[in-house]
């Protein structure tokens, strides 16, 4: 398996110049997609350590299977299919694990974290997480992939094996339901 770490300069055997052809090597793709995968898993998993372990697993799996990636389809669909399947496997193996709310979506006291993005409190993120848990599994999958993994509708459809129209419908209903949950929450707080 050819696995160039860096792009070789002056090499004539460059990949074919097709539209949508993904020519970047693995480390370049890793640099771009790590944040999205890590965020997606931190949104879905109970504690950040598990999310980080899963992120590590996702990229190790991706490296082992990188020669199977066709390069003509978006890398985002491919890596998030691995991420989503890894998450589903994790859920199957951890059905009895109780949710530790105090740890939910919290970050480690780590210098690499970006303090400017911590304006919203963990409490707000926790609230969103709880409301997401009140949606159907399909709605949860679609909304997290769409709005936290930052995927396009077509890519979400590919990851979940659904049609685009089905994903649009699920997304629309999920947003409406989430909106209602927020409104109900607001009304309760006012009382």
């Amino acid at each position: 398996m050819a696995m160039p770490l860096e792009k070789a300069e002056g090499v004539s055997s460059s990949p074919p110049k097709q539209e949508n052809y993904e020519s970047r090597d693995f480390t370049e793709l890793y640099d771009e997609y790590f944040d999205r995968v890590n965020r997606y898993l931190r949104c879905r998993v109970c504690n950040p350590w598990d999310a980080d372990d899963l992120t590590t697993t996702v990229f190790l799996k991706a490296l082992e299977k990188f020669d199977q990636y066709s390069r003509t389809s978006p890398f985002a669909s491919w890596i998030f299919r691995i991420a989503h399947n890894t998450f589903v496997d994790y859920l199957r193996n951890n059905r009895e694990t109780p949710v530790d709310d105090s740890q939910l979506l919290s970050g480690e006291a780590d210098d690499t974290w970006q303090p400017e993005r911590q304006a919203l409190t963990n409490e707000e993120i926790q609230l969103l997480k709880e409301r997401l848990e009140m949606l159907t599994p399909d709605q949860r999958d679609v909304l997290t992939l769409r709005y936290f993994a930052d995927l396009k509708i077509s890519q979400v459809a590919e990851v979940l094996g659904k049609t685009e129209s089905s994903v649009k419908m699920i997304s629309h209903r999920g947003l409406q339901q989430l909106q209602r949950l927020y409104e109900e929450g607001d009304r309760r707080e006012k009382r």
């Binding site: 970050g107 480690e108 780590d110 911590q118």
Partner: peptide, 8 residues
């Protein structure tokens, strides 16, 4: 706002 583990 979801933190990313850059150290990892």
């Amino acid at each position: 706002a979801v933190p990313v583990n850059y150290k990892l």
